[in-house]
């Protein structure tokens, strides 16, 4: 949200130095204009790095699941990478590829943080998974992975458009593909596995967020591209609609990732389907 506010208010380079801000690490500057967004974004980022480091250390100390310890370390590495990309964005004057990478890694970090919250939750730890084998092709798990892939493509296309590296139409065109793939995934999940709460809830959330996101995308297009083309400064409707579009986009990606994880847990592909006949014969022998 803080990053989206910076870009939407065209305030990305209002603080020209990095990692310091006007020569200081934490001194509050004259809090006006674009500085409000950029400096606040840096402070939020600094707090996030500290919190992520605390989570990583805590997880390493108390968590018994080795893969979760690695995930927490991965989260910290991602937030550091994100900070470096933010710095490069400032020092290299916002090259579209770097700024887009900064936006993409931000949402990746958000997804990792959500995943850590999911895996460390009481329900995940104590729940006895209800398992139904998936016999359909493509499998629901494949569909969820495809959904995450198209969402990432959409994220990159949106970032490139937002950072003036590409026209708007690839993002709009891919929105059709995203809608189709996500709707297919949600309909499959809800029509076949609606009795599994852990699958049903993220599927409904994903579908709701998809509809909201399409509406916000349309509004953002109207305010920024159609009506705001010749605006002399960022106007409130375009800032609100684009920030909301970015935020709901992040939630949609996270909801899809949760659905994918829950499908992997509750609706696995049958063992016979996963292992080829040759492998099974070999292991039997």
């Amino acid at each position: 949200m803080a990053g989206a506010l910076v870009t939407s208010n065209d305030a990305g380079l209002s603080v020209p130095d990095w990692p310091t801000s006007f020569g200081y690490l934490v001194k509050v500057p004259h809090f006006v204009g674009g500085i409000r967004y950029e400096w606040s974004h840096r402070m939020v980022a600094g707090t996030l790095v500290s919190l992520t480091l605390a989570i990583a250390i805590w997880t390493l100390l108390v968590e018994r699941r080795r893969w979760l310890r690695w995930l927490a370390v991965g989260a910290f590495c991602t937030v550091i990478a994100q900070a470096i990309l933010g710095g490069l964005t400032v020092l290299l004057f916002q090259p579209p590829a770097v700024s887009t990478a900064h936006a993409t890694v931000a949402q990746t970090f958000f997804c990792i943080a959500v995943a850590i919250a999911l895996f460390s939750g009481r329900k995940w730890v104590e729940e006895q998974p209800r398992i139904e084998f998936d016999q359909r092709r493509p499998s629901l798990f494949t569909l969820t992975l495809l959904s995450i892939f198209v969402l990432y493509v959409q994220l990159i296309l949106g970032g490139m458009f937002r950072h003036h590296g590409m026209s708007w139409w690839p993002h709009v065109l891919n929105a059709v593909i995203v809608s189709f793939v996500l709707a297919w995934t949600a309909v499959r999940a809800l029509s076949v596995y609606s009795e599994i709460e852990a699958v049903r809830r993220p599927a409904i959330l994903m579908l709701s967020l998809l509809i909201t996101q399409l509406c916000l995308g349309f509004t953002a297009f109207l305010t920024r591209v159609a009506w705001g083309r010749n605006a002399v400064q960022p106007e409130l409707p375009m800032v609100v609609s684009t920030v909301a579009h970015v935020a709901v986009g992040a939630l949609l990606l996270a909801a899809t990732m949760i659905l994918s994880i829950q499908v992997w847990r509750h609706v696995p592909v049958a063992f016979e389907e996963r292992v080829s006949r040759e492998q099974r014969d070999a292991s039997a022998a």
């Binding site: 990583a56 250390i57 310890r69 370390v73 550091i80 470096i84 490069l88 020092l91 290299l92």
Partner: peptide, 28 residues
């Protein structure tokens, strides 16, 4: 925290700082 992990964390932080310095120096 096990030693391996802490060593890796330090390595990543050092690498990040080095990259940052390289960029800053190149710019200057």
């Amino acid at each position: 925290m096990n030693k391996k992990t802490s060593r890796r964390m330090i390595s990543v932080s050092t690498l990040a700082c080095a990259l940052l310095l390289t960029v800053a120096c190149n710019k200057k």
